[in-house]
């Protein structure tokens, strides 16, 4: 191809655009591949709608007032709800955010504003590794430290810490990326006014990257909210309302799992219902983020 002499031989004596048999075959083949590629995209898009469809259709019958206000009933009895799991998930997530957000934010600020040279590389690398860590391994780690040693029993705080560990790398990555997008001129202007660096970061850099940071935070909370594996090892679950972080606390994903694997049809409906609640919460969060970021882009 690269050799001009070969190229010149390929030039058709008639017109290069004249449709010959080879051209038709090539064109047909191109169409065929375009078809395959479209099908691939179609498959990718429809999988989401199929799964969402199932969750909505099978979960909707479970949704009623009891579902949000009652606690689960004994085995085989019809009725009850997932209220302790909802409050439990909210509590665990709030505590996880309380731990994870400052750490993630701080680490992101370090990477964008303070760190230099190879230390930045190392920390960024560690953060990426943490992001790729299987969540079950995080659960094993937190079990070994908090459940076995520090707290001494299955507890809400152990679950919150494992979720925080999952949240941190997501926050770090977004925060670093959006902070680097803040124009340097803003920083210069602030410093030139005699503002110390910490004031510059807090009152100038962070506010101008606000929407992006919030995106990262919400994404991390959404991701942590659906985590199940580490919670199974750390918070255990609870069919009663519990606000004590040093004791086991219920969580929607655990309740969903317990409902799903049990052999009672009513519990299966409740499993789908729990899935619907979980997806709705995540969906609302994601949509909110999308709206917020779009506003910032304009």
């Amino acid at each position: 191809m690269a050799d001009p002499s070969t190229l010149s031989f390929k030039v058709s004596p008639v017109s290069p655009l004249a449709p010959d048999r080879r051209y038709v075959a090539r064109k047909f083949y191109g169409r065929f591949m375009a078809g395959l590629i479209t099908v691939a995209a179609l498959v990718g898009v429809s999988v989401l709608w199929i799964i969402l469809g199932y969750v909505i259709v099978r979960g909707a019958p479970a949704i009623n007032l009891d579902f949000f206000t009652q606690r689960p009933l004994p085995y085989g009895e019809v009725g009850g709800g997932i209220a302790p799991s909802i409050t439990g998930t909210l509590l665990i997530l709030a505590v996880a955010a309380l731990i994870g957000v400052p750490v993630g934010l701080g680490c992101g600020i370090y990477l964008a504003e303070y760190g230099r040279g190879s230390v930045v590389e190392v920390i960024r690398f560690c953060s990426d590794l943490l992001a790729g860590l299987p969540s079950i391994v995080v659960g094993v780690f937190v079990w070994a430290i908090l459940v076995r040693q520090v707290v001494g029993n299955f507890s809400g705080i152990a679950g919150a810490v494992s979720l925080a560990i999952i949240m941190v790398p997501i926050i770090v990555r977004t925060v670093e990326a959006v902070l680097l997008l803040v124009p340097y001129t803003l920083r210069e202007a602030a410093l030139a006014l005699g503002v110390p660096k910490w004031r510059m970061v807090i009152s100038v850099v962070l506010p101008s990257a606000r929407a992006g940071i919030i995106t990262g935070l919400v994404l991390s909370v959404a991701r942590a909210g659906g985590e199940t594996a580490p919670l199974l090892l750390t918070t255990l679950g609870n069919q009663f309302f519990s606000w004590n972080l040093l004791e086991p606390i219920g969580a929607i994903p655990i309740q969903l799992y317990n409902y799903a694997v049990a052999p009672y049809p009513d519990w299966h409906t409740k499993a789908w219902g729990s899935a619907l609640v979980l997806i709705s919460v995540i969906g609302i969060l994601s949509t909110a983020v999308r709206v917020a970021t779009r506003r910032q882009n304009r």
């Binding site: 004994p74 609870n238 069919q239």
Partner: peptide, 14 residues
Amino acid sequence: TGAGATFPAALYSK
């Protein structure tokens, strides 16, 4: 807080 057997779980939940 208790944890363990599923054999009596139906009974215990009652």
